[in-house]
Amino acid sequence: MRTIARLSAEEFEHSVKELADLLVDAVDDGASLGFVTPFRHEAAAAWWRAQAPAVAAGGQLVWVCRVDGVLAGTVSLIPAVKANSRHRAEVVKLMVHRAARGQGLSRALLATAEQAALDAGVSLLMLDTETGSTAEHVYLSGGWTRFGIVPDYAASPDGTLRDCSFFFKRLTDT
Rank of each mutant, 00 (worst) to 15 (best):
W144C: 02
S165E: 09
G73D: 05
T172V: 12
L71T: 12
L19A: 03
I78S: 04
A117I: 02
Q115L: 10
P38F: 11
C65Q: 07
A57V: 00
Q60A: 08
E42D: 14
E114L: 07
D163V: 01
F12D: 07
A83E: 10
V36G: 04
D25V: 06
P151G: 01
V122A: 03
A155Q: 12
S133P: 09
T174K: 06
T134H: 13
N84Y: 11
L77K: 07
D173A: 15
A44H: 07
F167D: 00
S156I: 01
L140R: 12
V122C: 07
G30L: 13
E114V: 08
K169S: 01
E90L: 01
A45T: 03
P79F: 03
E136A: 15
P38T: 09
A116E: 06
L105M: 03
G69D: 15
A155L: 04
R170M: 13
C164G: 12
L33N: 13
D68P: 08
A5V: 15
A31R: 09
A52I: 05
V55A: 01
A9K: 02
L140M: 06
S133Q: 11
G132E: 10
R162V: 09
L171A: 09
L140S: 08
P157C: 10
M95D: 05
T172P: 00
R101Q: 15
A56K: 12
E10S: 14
P53H: 04
A56H: 05
A43K: 08
R2I: 15
E10H: 12
K17T: 15
D28M: 03
A31M: 15
A154N: 00
F12A: 10
F35D: 04
V36W: 00
H87S: 01
D21H: 15
M95N: 06
W63G: 04
V122S: 00
A43F: 07
T134L: 11
S123H: 13
D68S: 08
R146L: 10
A9W: 04
S141T: 07
A100S: 14
Q60S: 05
R49G: 03
Q51T: 05
T131K: 14
T172H: 08
L124K: 02
G34I: 04
N84G: 12
A72G: 08
